[in-house]
Simulated scan of single mutants.
Amino acid sequence: MSLNDVKSIFLVAGARPNFMKIAPLVRALRADGRLGWQLIHTGQHYDRDMNDVFFEELGIPKPDVFMGCGGGSHAEQTAKVMVGFEALCLERKPDCVLVVGDVNSTLACAIVAKKLQIPVAHVEAGLRSGDRSMPEEINRLVTDAISDLFFVTEPSGVEHLVREGKSLSAVHHVGHVMADNVLYQAAQSPVVSYSAPCEVAEFKELYGRGRYGVITLHRPSNVDDGSTFSAIGGALREFSRELPLIFPVHPRTRSNLERFGIDLGARITLVGPQPYMSFLNLWKDAGVVLTDSGGLQEETTVLGVPCLTLRENTERPITLDEGTNVLVGTNPHAILREARAVLAGRGKCGRRPKLWDGRAAERIVSTLVRELGVI
């Protein structure tokens, strides 16, 4: 094969949830060696906490292109990415554009590639919450409507895509690159040095493994509505009397705590956003995780940590059917009931789903090699 025959893929990353999914793909592409690739960072998340630290800790190389398209409303951000990515595609002419997840960059780059008649591969395709008030759901629906290859994490994704008219030959149930990353990084954590903020290290040392809980909250439906956030906060404060909790707080969430006058009490420790390895080493040793994050539902299932999801729906039903996740909604009584069940040893016992074995990225690369006609 000559250099001119090498097929080239754009790997698109833009926001913090993308980085954990790109890292295993980079490792798999390097190991396979049959495809050329370029890492395109749209800059959707552009501060150091959301960007540089994650690249360093996950071993992701410096992007080939950093577009710097962060900031603005959903429409402004999407438009900036589309304009910049179109120029890049016209200049470099990739043979395939691979997008991951459901952030604005995923949607924007998929649209541009499709209009330029460049094949689009979507990793984490087919997930559906059924809630179109979530920006991520719109991004998922539109991206899947125009993609050519679909890499699916769980059976429900296959079912959704087939129901929406996709050919089974284009849908590949490969497992989950998020699981690849968690298993890989968890194996590294005992032997690599990571810089945990002092307050996090002190918290873990004070309480010990399994004797604390972790909170994450960032969804607008939970933290932008004063009555909802106050109700959740009250339940968390009450539960913290029975189990100390630590809360890495998203900047908007912290602002709304102050705005709505929510006092979480002395048994909930508030800390800033965490680097990847610091946060992994925090939640993997927790007795319970209370979250509204999509990715954390999956990560806790991978490592067998009890997870209570403070949402009315989830696009990741396998974490409920097979994993350690329980959907508790935002009702304070339900939150307390399920949290106390975990504390009493009556929490849900789950298992790691099929194909969440650390080899999803390898399967994706093998499929891309075949589909792009590389011999």
Rank of each mutant, 00 (worst) to 15 (best):
M1C: 04
M1Y: 06
I9Q: 00
L11R: 07
R16G: 09
N18G: 05
A23F: 12
P24M: 08
L25R: 03
L25S: 03
L29P: 04
I40W: 03
Q44E: 09
H45G: 06
R48I: 14
R48S: 15
F54G: 00
E56L: 13
E57N: 08
P63F: 13
D64L: 10
D64A: 15
V65H: 15
C69W: 01
G71L: 09
M82C: 08
M82D: 02
F85E: 02
A87H: 12
R92T: 08
D102K: 11
D102V: 15
C109L: 08
A110N: 01
V112D: 01
V112R: 00
K115V: 06
Q117F: 14
H122M: 12
H122W: 08
V123F: 03
R128V: 07
S133Y: 04
I138D: 00
R140Y: 11
V142L: 15
D144N: 14
A145W: 07
A145E: 08
T153C: 09
T153H: 00
L168I: 12
H172S: 13
H173I: 05
V177H: 05
M178K: 03
Y184G: 04
A196P: 12
A196L: 11
A196V: 10
V200M: 03
F203Y: 14
G208W: 05
R209P: 01
G213H: 02
V214D: 02
L217S: 02
D225M: 09
F229I: 07
A231R: 12
I232K: 05
I232P: 09
G233A: 04
G234N: 13
P244S: 09
I246E: 00
P248L: 03
V249H: 01
T253H: 02
S255F: 13
N256A: 08
E258N: 13
L264T: 10
V271C: 14
Q274A: 10
M277N: 08
M277R: 15
L280R: 12
L280C: 06
L282K: 03
W283H: 13
D285G: 15
V288C: 14
V288P: 06
T291H: 10
S293A: 14
V302E: 00
V302I: 11
L303C: 08
P306T: 07
R311D: 00
E315C: 12
R316L: 11
T319C: 12
L320K: 08
G323W: 04
T324W: 15
N325I: 10
G329E: 01
N331T: 06
I335H: 01
E338V: 11
A341P: 07
A341D: 11
G345F: 10
G350F: 04
A360K: 04
V365R: 00
S366E: 15
V374R: 02
V374S: 00
